[in-house]
Design a protein around this nucleic acid. Structure first.
Lengths: 217, 217
DNA sequence: CCAAAAGTGTTTTTGCTACACCCATGG
DNA sequence: CCATGGGTGTAGCAAAAACACTTTTGG
C-alpha cells in the first residue's frame, strides 16, 4: 500500500520595522537550488505534526518559544517535482527579536522578508503564504492572536499599529482604545514607557497568555 | 525514511426529519469490529485528499454529487492502535434523500445517526464530529453553506429551520427573512409551494451555487 | 516654547432586537 | 368557517463610527 509522504511547512512571522515579515530559508539542494522557501521537513512516523513543526523551527533557528497552529493541508499532485509529498502547513509566531540564525545541510541562508516584497519561492509556498495572510486578518480580528505578537509590555499605540499593519488600514485611535479596554484581554501595568521625547505612554500586558477567541474589532 | 500513513475520514451530513444527521458505517474488521465509525480510508500516493474523500464516499454509498471541504488533520499518536495513521478529516454535504446504501468487505452496515444520539465510535471519530459541529455553526452563520443543504427550490421557513437545527436556537421569523433577503444570496423563483393546507409559500433558490463567505445572521 | 505622540467624550448613524396581527388556502 | 403556516412593519436600544482638542515630556 502506498501513501504520500507527509511533511510540514511553517509560516513563521513577526512584525519588524512596521512590516509584516515571514521567515524564509534559501535552499541549497535539488530541486530548487537557490530558491527561497518556507522552513519545512518531513514528519516522522511517531511524531505529532505540531511537534514536527517545532522540531523543524528549532533546527532552522534554535528558537523554541513560540505559538504554532495548524493551517491547512496542501496536496497538489505536482507540488514537489521529485516525490508525492503532502504538506500540513502551520503558522508560528516568534516574539523574540533575536533569533540565532543557523544554516545546515539543506539551507544556505535564512532571512526575514516583508510580505509585500517576497522573492520567487519554491514549491507552492507562495500559495501557503497567501492562504495564511487571509487567515491572519481573520484571526487578528476575532482572537487575541495580536497579543502574541507583542512583547511582555507594550503601549496601546504599538498594539494598534500591529492591527493596522495586518489589516492594511488605519484605525481610529479612540475607538480602538475603547474596544480593547472593554474586551478585558489587556491590563494596565501601571508602568510608563519613558524613553522618548513625547509624553510617556502607559504600558499594558496581556491578561491571558493563551489564545482566546474574542471579537476585538 | 518513515512517514505516517495518510488517510481521510469524512463527516457526511444532512438534515432529515428535523434532525442534524451524520452518516456512519459499521466496521467488521479489526481493530474495532462492530463499532460505528466515519467512512474513511487511505489516501493513495498519486491522489488528492479531496479526491480520496470523494472516492471513499462513492465506494460506501454510490453518491458522487456532493460538496466536500477539508476540516482539519487529526494525528494523535495512538488514534489507531494498529499503525501510525494521520487522518485528514473532511466534511461533505449530501443533498439527495435517497442514497443507495452499499456494504462491502470493510463495512457491515451504514446508517444515519442524529448528532445527539451518537453510538460508541471507533478511533477518535467522536472528536472529529465534535470539531465539525463547532465549525458547522460558524460556517452556517458566515457563509452560504446552509444553501447547500437545501433542495433546488425551498421556502424561507424551510431554510430558517435549517439554521435553527444547526444553531440549536429559535430565530425570529421577520428578522430572519429581512437578513436573508438583504444579503442577496437567494432569489424568489416566482413559484409557490402549493401542496398543503396552509397558504402557499414562495419558493426561493440560491443565486450562486458556490460557497460564498457572507455574514448571514 | 516647540515638536511629538498620548490621552480623552460626545454626537450621529447604523444595525439589531423584540414584538403581534392579518392573509391565503383546503377541507 | 376553521385550522395552519405564510407573510409583513415599527419602535426602542445598543453598538459602531466619526470627529478635534488638550496634555505631557525632552530638548
Amino acid at each position: 500500500m502506498e501513501s504520500p509522504i507527509l511533511a510540514t511547512d511553517v509560516v513563521v512571522f513577526n512584525i519588524r520595522k512596521w512590516k509584516l515579515k515571514v521567515l524564509l530559508i534559501k535552499m541549497n539542494k535539488e530541486p530548487f537550488v537557490w530558491l527561497w522557501a518556507l522552513p519545512g521537513w518531513f514528519i516522522w512516523e511517531k511524531e505529532l505534526c505540531l511537534d514536527a513543526a517545532h522540531r523543524i523551527l528549532y533546527e532552522a533557528s534554535s528558537v523554541s518559544d513560540l505559538y504554532i497552529e495548524q493551517l491547512k493541508v496542501f496536496d497538489a499532485i505536482d507540488r514537489d517535482p521529485k516525490a508525492r509529498i503532502v504538506s500540513i502547513a502551520h503558522m508560528a509566531i516568534i516574539k523574540k527579536d533575536d533569533l540565532s540564525i543557523k544554516t545546515n545541510d539543506s539551507y544556505s541562508d535564512i532571512a526575514w522578508f516583508s510580505v509585500d516584497e517576497l522573492p520567487v519561492m519554491a514549491y507552492d509556498h507562495l500559495d501557503i503564504i497567501k492562504y495564511w495572510l487571509e487567515r491572519l486578518e481573520w484571526k487578528v480580528t476575532y482572537s487575541t492572536l495580536s497579543l502574541s505578537l507583542m512583547p511582555e509590555k507594550f503601549t496601546l499605540s504599538e498594539l494598534q499599529s500591529v492591527f493596522e499593519i495586518v489589516l492594511k488600514k488605519d484605525l481610529d485611535k479612540r475607538n480602538f482604545r475603547k474596544k480593547l479596554l472593554k474586551s478585558w484581554v489587556i491590563e494596565d501595568t501601571g508602568e510608563k514607557k519613558t524613553i522618548g521625547i513625547p509624553r510617556p505612554a502607559s504600558l499594558f500586558r496581556a491578561i491571558n497568555k493563551d489564545l482566546e477567541f474574542v471579537d476585538l474589532l
